[in-house]
């Protein structure tokens, strides 16, 4: 197996809030191999976007962090801002959720491209920069005639393709795509996903695809990490996880996906926990249909359920549960525990 291009080790990111620290990312370890697409799925508010920003070192002021984001042998979270800025673009790229507002409305598309190329490849002549930009745009199906136009002259799907071209024009080794299709309609969504899936073939770009749509994961990703309340609860090959999820949260999330064969709507009762004071032990136990008494008392160990596959759930290490604690969790007991 190739060495990972990016590896997160026990990454923790928190925001200071009045009530205490919001632990948006709480101990995540994840590897990204060259040319690999990893899907990061989970509900809104489980820390996916924070993780994605942490990966390129783009955290807001006031965010704290611990752990490592290793890229080419260095922890980028420890780099000086100037070094990190030089890496953003040519090494680490980002594609955002909302393409409509991500381009500067007063700058032409050409200005956007020439700006990044001038910053990161100052030796490039104007003409070469132009050619590079046009080539990147053509790759995304944007005709060169529209190079000198303003962002408002493009549709949402086109703007997202421009954003992708803008990220790819520097040929970064790692790209984080934060819900790149959420704001777009389904046809455009399919188009964007196809473009992203082609990335690994055309370049050797590793892609961290953040989404809450499991259909996209099955189609475009090699591996999947399922995130809940700041933790990766399960990770493994995309096919395995989308067909045979081993963590109850992944399973419930998958059941909630709406498709043409859906006959009734399924949802997970409750809401993701407050990340200032998350539930003790397993974060998912208050909503988990399989919760046992141990789940509210002890942190589950991470178990490799099959090659390349890990799951953080007591169901996979039943032999380690002390006697009597494998009984189903009483919901009344749970309510009492929460009040305490």
């Amino acid at each position: 197996m190739a060495d990972p291009v990016l590896s997160l080790r026990d990454l923790r990111i928190w925001y200071g809030a009045e009530r205490g620290a919001v632990r948006a990312v709480d101990g995540v370890s994840l590897d990204l191999l060259p040319g690999e697409t990893v899907g990061l799925v989970g509900e809104s508010g489980c820390g996916k976007s924070t993780l994605g920003r942490g990966v390129i070192g783009l955290l807001p002021a006031g965010a704290g962090h611990a752990g490592e984001v290793n890229y080419k042998g260095q922890n980028i979270l420890e780099l000086k801002p100037k070094r990190l800025r030089a890496m953003r673009g040519p090494e680490l790229g980002m594609i955002f959720q909302e393409p409509m507002t991500r381009l500067n409305p007063l700058m032409k598309i050409s200005d956007h491209f020439e700006e990044v190329l001038k910053i990161h490849e100052p030796k490039l002549s104007r003409k070469e920069a132009r050619n590079r930009a046009m080539e990147a745009l053509r790759g995304m199906g944007i005709p060169p005639t529209r190079y000198k136009q303003y962002p408002h002259e493009f549709s949402g799907g086109m703007r997202q393709r421009i954003m992708i071209a803008l990220a790819l024009v520097l040929r970064p080794a790692v790209v984080v795509a934060d819900e790149p299709t959420t704001a777009l309609d389904v046809l455009v969504e399919a188009q964007i996903i196809r473009i992203l899936a082609d990335l690994r073939r055309n370049f050797d770009t590793a892609l961290l695809l953040i989404t809450h749509n499991l259909g996209i994961v099955a189609e475009a990703c090699d591996r999947v990490a399922v995130m809940y309340a700041g933790r990766v609860v399960e990770q493994g090959p995309a096919y395995d996880i989308t067909t045979k999820p081993s963590h109850p949260y992944s399973r419930e999330l998958l059941r909630s996906t709406i498709s043409l064969s859906t006959t009734e709507l399924h949802s997970i009762p409750g809401a993701p926990p407050d990340l200032v004071s998350p539930p003790p032990a397993c974060r998912f136990h208050p909503r988990c249909p399989d919760a046992m008494q141990i789940c509210a008392q002890q942190w589950p160990t991470t178990v490799a359920t099959s090659p390349g596959r890990r799951s953080e759930c007591w169901l996979h290490s039943k032999d380690q549960i002390p006697k009597g604690l494998d009984a189903p969790l009483e919901r009344e007991a749970l309510a009492a525990a929460e009040e305490a």
């Binding site: 790229g93 909302e98 007063l106």
Partner: peptide
């Protein structure tokens, strides 16, 4: 703004972000 964060994500310097991206838009 979103486009300012996006510019930062492309490694645009803080100085340039302020002068080129934020100030001009603020002048409108």
């Amino acid at each position: 703004g979103d486009y300012v964060e996006a510019a930062r994500a492309r490694g645009v310097s803080e100085r340039r972000v302020v002068s080129r991206h934020a100030f001009r838009n603020a002048l409108v």
